[in-house]
């Protein structure tokens, strides 16, 4: 393998990894606050892509307007999802909430099939995202350069919010002790809504970027990325935001380097994600950056 080819694969891995990271952040934030795995997160991702598609195709918005509108609507959808499917079960056993999450996921997928149709739709990629950039034998599309930038900006902003702002302080409080947070007159519901909104917003951005990178939509497009990004969050240490980003990059890296070095195993690229998950869970069950699980007494 030539150096140029290796760098090419590395660039692809970086771009795919940061896309995974963007979605994994949503899983990890929601888990951090509510100890809930939002199985519908992948479907929120799908919804973001479709909303942007229809904003362009039906409402004739320019691509950036469509992106903005779709992202905001996706965030609102995430808040609404929590309101309908999870909030009524706030003090129920965790298994009930999990079943509700799985139900919500199936519901969204099937409603999407009815509304959007089961046949794949082609996305018109905006010109700025579709520029071929070449540097020393490595060529990538501009969207693949934009995604890592978005991911790192999102990571920096989120870390700042969580560590430095009042709402971030309240988020950390709610995540460690729900009742104690209530006793400080913290509006727990508002914090949870904020968390879902932020996570869904990032999923929406991720879905749209995905549709620029792989310009085809179908109502089940969120299932596999959703599962993989959940794995990424677990690998990094679920509940830990930098961990989710690290997990996303690891997953993207392993997947594309498999293709690079073991081309005959390309068909098994998804299996490597699960192998990585199993290895990490065996060696460090709390994830790479996750602290030791503190049992509440």
């Amino acid at each position: 393998m030539t150096l140029a080819l290796f760098l090419q694969h590395l660039a692809n891995a970086l771009s795919l990894g940061s896309l995974y990271a963007l979605i994994a952040i949503g899983y990890t934030m929601v888990y951090g606050i509510l100890r809930l795995i939002n199985f519908a997160h992948g479907d929120v991702f799908m919804l973001g892509a479709y909303l942007a598609f229809y904003s362009v195709a039906t409402f004739m918005l320019p691509w950036w307007g469509a992106l903005l509108l779709a992202v905001l609507l996706t965030a609102a959808f995430g808040v609404g999802l929590e309101w309908v499917a999870y909030r009524p079960l706030r003090d129920s056993p965790r298994i009930s909430v999990m079943i509700s999450a799985i139900g919500a996921s199936f519901l969204i997928e099937n409603v999407a099939i009815v509304l959007f149709g089961g046949r794949p739709k082609g996305v018109t990629v905006p010109d700025v995202m579709n520029v071929k950039l070449t540097l020393g034998g490595v060529s990538i599309m501009s969207v693949s350069l934009v995604i890592p930038i978005i991911t790192f900006v999102a990571l920096a902003v989120l870390l700042w919010v969580v560590q430095r702002t009042r709402v971030g302080m309240a988020m950390r409080a709610v995540s460690t002790d729900l009742d104690a947070a209530r006793l400080q007159a913290i509006d727990v519901n508002r914090i949870v809504s904020f968390t879902f909104g932020t996570g869904s917003l990032l999923a929406g951005v991720g879905g749209i970027m995905w549709s620029y990178k792989y310009p085809q939509l179908n109502p089940l497009m969120g299932v596999m990325p959703g599962l993989k990004c959940f794995i990424a969050a677990v690998i990094g240490g679920i509940g830990n935001i930098p961990g989710a980003v690290l997990g996303g990059f690891l997953l993207g890296g392993i997947e594309l380097l498999t293709i690079a070095f073991l081309p005959t195993l390309t068909g098994y690229r998804d299996a490597f994600a699960f192998v990585l998950l199993i290895v990490v869970l065996l060696v460090k069950p709390s994830g790479l950056l996750g602290g030791a699980a503190v049992e509440k007494v």
Binding site: R166, M169, A170, R172, A173, T176, D177, D179, A180, A181, L183, Q184, A185, I186, V294, V297
Partner: peptide, 26 residues
């Protein structure tokens, strides 16, 4: 009307000062 819960339930991953600031959250 305020309760100091049994077992104290301070926020262990927040600093002492942050715990106090959260007390005045509302």
């Amino acid at each position: 009307v305020c309760l100091v819960p049994e077992g104290r339930h301070v926020f262990p991953n927040l600093t002492v000062d942050e715990n106090l600031i959260l007390g005045a959250y509302s």
